[in-house]
């Protein structure tokens, strides 16, 4: 199976994600985060936020749900069992906070085919009430069968 570059530039339908307080706390514990603003609303209020704030990489929980549309798109042809995560970037416009209903839409920015496979770069824009929250850029290395053989 090879990767089809025809979908480059395509933006997939947005997914919504309700940021729960317990989800933020559970994620913060899982990444060994220590700052009280991830766990206690009072500590978040001290920083000027209405509820607990998510750790910087929490945005991946939201972005990967939106990116799933690309993996599932038969027009692109990504075999998920051959995917290796190559790089990730989070640009935060404002911290993600419990209680927000986020919208996340992924654009297939670039597919670069190489001898060993293809590098697939996606950009996911995360918003709350149309106000920007985070831009998540992710690159996956997809190995092709020719390389594995």
């Amino acid at each position: 199976m090879s990767i089809n570059t025809a979908r480059e530039g395509h933006t997939y339908p947005a997914v919504t994600y309700q940021v729960g307080r317990e989800a933020v706390r559970e994620f913060a514990r899982a990444v060994k985060a220590e700052h009280p603003a991830h766990f206690e609303s009072e500590a978040a209020a001290d920083l000027g936020y209405p509820d607990v704030v998510a750790p910087p990489t929490f945005a991946v929980v939201v972005s990967q749900r939106a990116e799933a549309a690309i993996i599932a798109d038969p027009e692109v042809g990504i075999d998920f069992s051959r995917v290796v995560h190559a790089d990730e970037r989070f640009v935060h416009h404002r911290p993600i906070t419990a209680g927000e209903t986020l919208s996340a839409a992924t654009t297939l920015q670039r597919i670069r085919t190489m001898g060993a496979g293809a590098m697939v770069t996606t950009v996911t824009e995360i918003t709350h009430d149309d106000a920007p929250r985070a831009t998540v850029t992710s690159t996956l290395l997809v190995r092709t069968e020719e390389e594995a053989a």
Partner: peptide, 22 residues
């Protein structure tokens, strides 16, 4: 995620991290 906790501990505020890549 665990690596950036060093930065957050130093900065004293997780919301100060506006861009993080690897």
């Amino acid at each position: 995620a665990v690596a950036v906790e060093l930065v957050i501990a130093w900065a004293g505020d997780p919301t100060k991290v506006v861009d993080y890549q690897t």
